[in-house]
Amino acid sequence: MSDIRFTKDHEWVLVDGDTATIGISDYAQEQLGDVVFVELPDIGKTLEQGDEAAVVESVKAASEVYAPVSGEVIEVNEELEAAPGRVNEDAMGEGWFVKLKLTDEDELDDLMDEAAYAKYIKELD
């Protein structure tokens, strides 16, 4: 299964096999405004669900990106360092942050599916 899941803090996670790709939602990038900097974790770092995985900054705000699921960092999107605007252009695709080696697939059950998330952000506005 490769369904996308969302957290209440607006991270998304897409699982393919035991690889979980993590980013921030389109809604989140819009709220942030122009992303100017992304701080990514070291490869090999182990993250528990809810740990700070990355930091994303706009001109006037900085937000932590929390790991939606637990796992070991196996890849980071280095392109964001030179081109942080990619987060704004394609938050759900090219603008991904981190890939984790998933340790507990059950954690996905805590998260929202696309429809639930759409409803959630509608209520926020």
Partner: peptide
């Protein structure tokens, strides 16, 4: 680069 500063980042 004001996100380093107290008025944005507060305790961080």
């Amino acid at each position: 680069l004001s996100t380093r500063e107290q008025h944005i980042r507060r305790e961080k």
